[in-house]
Amino acid sequence: MKAFTQLNGLVCPLNRANVDTDAIIPKQFLKSIKRSGFGPNLFDEWRYLDHGEPGMDNSGRPINPEFVLNFPRYAGAQVLLARENFGCGSSREHAPWAIDDYGFRVVIAPSFADIFFNNCFKNGLLPIVLPADVVDQLFRETEAGDGYRLNVDLAAQTVTTPSGASFGFDITTHRKHCLLNGLDEIGLTLQHADEIKTFEAAYRARQPWLFVE
C-alpha cells in the first residue's frame, strides 16, 4: 500500500448528504477483475450525460457541466469535501479505488459509512471526520473563491486552511502507523501467525462443529 504522510491539495466540494457507493461507482463497472482504472467512471451517472459502460472511451463522452467535478476550477483536486454519511451502501472497495484512481488522497466529511471508511485505509486514502460546523465552514471557504487548498498532516493529525486555522482529527494508532508507513496489513498480521494458530487450536477444541472439512 502507498503511504500517506502530508498533502497540500486543491479542494473539491460535493454538497450532497448520503452519497452512496452506487453513485460513487455504478454497478456495471464492478464487473472488472482489476483494482485499477476506475477513476474515469467515478460518479459516472452524475458526471456524464450518457449511459456509461465498461470499455467505453470516456474521453469522447458528453460531460455534465453542472456536476462539480467537471468545473474547471476543481481540475486536479486531491481533497474531496463531502457531507454526512458519505460512502453509505455496499461494501464495494471499487468506491475508494475509483476515488483514489481519480486523484483524490483525502476525503473530509462530518460522518462516513463504516465499511467505506474502513476500506479507504486499505488503499492509502485518508478519510477525515470533522465536526459539521467545521465542514460547513470549509464548504463556504471552498466555494468562495478559486484555488482553495487544504494542508493535511497525518503525523500531526491536523487539517489547516489557507488562513492558518487548524483542526485536529482522530485516527487509531494502528491505522495511522499503517498509513504513514504504507504497510501491507496482511504481512503485519502474519507476524502473529503463531498466536492465530494457538487461538485456533483451542477454539477448535471448544467448538469442533465449526471445523467441518
Binding site: I115, K122, I186
Partner: peptide
C-alpha cells in the same frame, strides 16, 4: 458483517480481520 476486497484477501490469508 460485510467487508471490502482488501479484507477478503486478509481473511483468506490470515483467517482473521483487523
Amino acid at each position: 458483517h460485510g467487508i471490502g476486497t482488501s479484507e477478503v484477501e486478509h481473511v483468506l490469508a490470515t483467517q482473521t480481520l483487523v
